[in-house]
């Protein structure tokens, strides 16, 4: 794709590119070296500040947090996918009475910060006698907000199926519901699979709001650790690396799914729609 914007560079352009590359890399390395030196000068690289993260108990604790993160992400993903499917179908319904509330939900929830929803569940519900367990205090607001995002992914997937498919199903005598269920949705599901995985990366990132709820997910576990050993920066660097490894693997999975779905048929090349966060 990118090849169309420029010609294959000639010998002089290649030399310029090489020079610029070397110069750029050198400048970058110099900046990094400077930063590391300053970091070390502030004592942040001292061995004893990193040593705890070379020990098993710390990692066991963080991996426990990661497990909780995964659990919250999986449960929220399941709930918000179910909700999202209902909302997407509702939004595509032919009845206004169904279409409008579904659209209103999606548009409204999309514009409210998840953090604010967390605060509502955290502070407001207990006053009305509804005090959810910690796990649900994180999962409920995440599901409420992500259902709207999944709804949009599903809707795009359903709309991407050629009209002829649904029309052919209707012509065969299937009802609207049957044509959705038997013809359109199975094809749409294939198409949105990569988007679902990358959407789930976003959801997994959202579980870091457990930090606010004090549900012992990865980021909150990092907080407890930092409280325990006082190594704030080191702890968050380690936590960030764990997130990076997990999410990058999931993103890679999304891409390979995308390739295999694309290879398996379907006339158009689809891209993974990533809902911005």
């Amino acid at each position: 794709m990118s090849g169309l914007l420029f010609d294959e560079p000639g010998p002089r352009a290649r030399r310029r590119i090489r020079l610029a590359t070397v110069a750029g890399v050198l400048v970058l390395l110099a900046l990094v070296a400077l930063a590391v030196r300053q970091f070390a000068a502030n004592g942040q690289l001292a061995a004893e500040r990193w040593q705890p993260y070379a020990t098993w108990p710390m990692w066991r604790y963080l991996l426990g947090g990661l497990w909780s993160t995964a659990l919250a992400a999986v449960v929220s993903a399941a709930l918000s996918m179910a909700g999202g499917l209902v909302l997407a179908l509702g939004r595509l319904s032919r009845r206004r009475a169904i279409r409008l509330p579904a659209a209103a939900y999606v548009e409204a929830v999309r514009t409210i910060p998840a953090l604010l929803l967390v605060y509502l569940v955290l502070f407001a519900l207990p006053r009305y006698g509804l005090d959810l367990p910690l796990f649900w205090k994180l999962v409920v607001p995440l599901s409420v907000s992500n259902a709207a995002l999944f709804a949009e992914v599903f809707r795009a997937g359903i709309l991407s199926i050629e009209r002829g498919q649904g029309e052919a199903a209707l012509a065969l005598g299937l009802t609207h519901g049957q044509s959705m269920r038997l013809v359109v949705l199975p094809q749409a599901a294939r198409r949105v699979l990569p988007s679902i995985v990358s959407q789930s990366v976003g959801l997994l990132k959202d579980t870091s709001l457990g930090f606010v709820v004090s549900y012992a997910e990865l980021l909150y576990s990092g907080k407890v650790l930092a409280n325990y050993n006082g190594l704030l920066i080191q702890t968050y660097i380690v936590v960030a690396l764990v997130y990076l490894v997990v999410n990058a693997s999931l993103s890679a999975l999304a891409r390979s799914l995308d390739r295999s779905v694309a290879g398996g048929g379907g006339p158009r090349r689809r891209k993974i729609t990533r809902v911005p966060r």
Partner: peptide, 16 residues
């Protein structure tokens, strides 16, 4: 950047 929670980035930047 797409694979890190913004909250983690914020905390790292502010204190790091």
């Amino acid at each position: 950047l797409q694979n890190l929670p913004l909250l983690v980035l914020l905390v790292l930047a502010v204190f790091g």
